[in-house]
């Protein structure tokens, strides 16, 4: 079966986040083991975890959640609305999400581009940790979120 573009984008985001969570688990585990066994912890673990891994971990699965309709929302008025009204409201909701996510993606992509141009990094001793990929994770996640909501709007 041919997957749609939004579907594929969501899966890529989710896969990226899942992979990075695995990587982060291993990295922290190695850090703990290195300190326990050899008395020398890995350098820069906290910086790598927070600046490089976490942006992917936190927002990577966002579009997949929205695509599946699992986003956190409150459904108190569901029972009150008629079927056509509910569909209309659903379409409007998804449009708002798409617009908000699109605007965020646009603004944060400018920030990410700045970070890339600067070659944003942290200096740990004599080691440079490149941090701009973490900035780039944000617009990517929100662009995928916008895509997922447009698809939801079409389907509803």
């Amino acid at each position: 079966m041919q997957r749609s573009l939004p579907d594929r984008a969501c899966r890529i985001g989710e896969l990226a986040a899942a992979t990075v969570i695995g990587l982060m688990t291993l990295h922290i585990g190695l850090d703990v083991a290195a300190l326990a066994l050899s008395g020398t912890p890995l350098r820069g673990t906290a910086e790598i975890v927070s600046e490089l891994y976490m942006p992917f971990v936190v927002f990577g699965g966002l579009a997949a959640v929205q695509y599946a309709g699992d986003e956190i929302r409150v459904d108190i008025i569901d029972g009150i609305l008629s079927q056509p009204l509910r569909r209309g409201l659903e379409k409007l909701t998804q449009l708002i999400v798409a617009l908000a996510a699109g605007a965020l993606a646009w603004q944060t992509s400018l920030q990410a581009l700045d970070a890339l141009k600067q070659g944003e990094h942290l200096v740990i001793g004599t080691m440079r940790i490149i941090t701009w990929p973490g900035k780039a994770a944000i617009p990517a996640a929100f662009a995928m979120l916008a895509l997922a909501s447009i698809d939801r709007m079409r389907r509803s």
């Binding site: 896969l15 986040a17 899942a18 969570i21 971990v57 699965g61 966002l62 986003e71 956190i72």
Partner: peptide, 20 residues
């Protein structure tokens, strides 16, 4: 195991997005 990590990715996103 892969499914468990994918679950984690979705749960993290859906919950921490609200927190953000």
């Amino acid at each position: 195991l892969r499914e468990a990590f994918a679950d984690t990715a979705r749960q993290t996103a859906s919950i921490l997005f609200v927190a953000a």
